[in-house]
Amino acid sequence: MSVRIEVCGEVVTAYLQGELDHHTAREMREEIDAAIDRNMPTLLVLDFKDITFMDSSGIGLVMGRYRKLQQIKAELHITNTSPHIYKVMKLAGLERLAKIDKGVKANERAK
């Protein structure tokens, strides 16, 4: 499974796992969209903590979900982006579409 979904009230969180490229994007997209349709959230959180690689297919995935969320007037947050993922997202100007939290390392969080 490349996506783990967690629902908490009106918030759906999708924990993405593995490599995000054109080959894997479709399955992730289908799982996220199914969760949106099922739960009609007001906020979708995409968690990138366990994404080990991402190219522009990841940008397509985020932009596509952003458009879908707009139709139900829901917001999009992106969390736990590694420096590499943040660099790709920044290039695409995704920070204009969604709030992006850069990754906090687990050991820093524990302090």
Binding site: A25, S57, G64, V88, L91, A92
Partner: peptide, 14 residues
């Protein structure tokens, strides 16, 4: 179409 961002070449260049 919809699911592609049109940023592949921009990523390569950057």
């Amino acid at each position: 179409g919809e699911e592609r961002a049109g940023l592949g070449f921009a990523v390569m260049q950057s």
